[in-house]
Design a protein around this nucleic acid. Sequence first.
DNA 1: TCGCTGTTTAGCTAAACATCGAAATAGGAG
DNA 2: CTCCTATTTCGATGTTTAGCTAAACAGCGA
Lengths: 98, 98
Amino acid sequence: MNRVFKALADPTRRSVLELLREGPMSAGDLAGHFPVSKATMSAHFAVLREASLVDTEKQGTTVIYHLQVSVLEDALLGLASAVGLGLTSKQPVKGEKS
Amino acid sequence: MNRVFKALADPTRRSVLELLREGPMSAGDLAGHFPVSKATMSAHFAVLREASLVDTEKQGTTVIYHLQVSVLEDALLGLASAVGLGLTSKQPVKGEKS
DNA sequence: TCGCTGTTTAGCTAAACATCGAAATAGGAG
DNA sequence: CTCCTATTTCGATGTTTAGCTAAACAGCGA
């Protein structure tokens, strides 16, 4: 839980999660969206992985990142309830396009 | 918004918010709940203030901290919606006792 | 095997952070 | 005015973090 909030503390990492909302994406594609080196991005990915906010799948030479929605949801709802904030999950999350 | 998530990244600060759920509390009382120095706690308070997660009221010599529920709610809902998580606020938050 | 692409590791610097004890500030009570 | 209590600020220290470049690693296709 702590790791989740630590992971969320960085704007780049939050943006990665947003990009992943649209669907799984390779590390390279993700990295292409940010003005930092690939090595730096890889470190961000590691933090997200440690927090279980994403998981990975290898497809040949590339690594595909998936958003783990439920982990984020649990963290947000957990904190919300701890501070007495009445938040509820509206609906199971499917693949939706904006 | 970034400041809010940075503030939430520390477990001590999250605990402070939880304590404040029960109602306003003085800096001294809050500090009494944690095994760190008052100076350290004061620094944590400053971070929470900068994020507008709490605000203060002076009563003579003591400083009373209040939880700013709406700021936290906005941050959590904002992120949730950014990643396509369907969270909704259940009800306006009143003063409730557990 | 060689070379290409994508990803991670290694080694580093600079900045940010958590923490402390001690000193400074601000009100209230004598 | 002086003292006491509550809180914050100051200066210092050790740890963590984001960032870089360069090197290493892992598959793929020829």
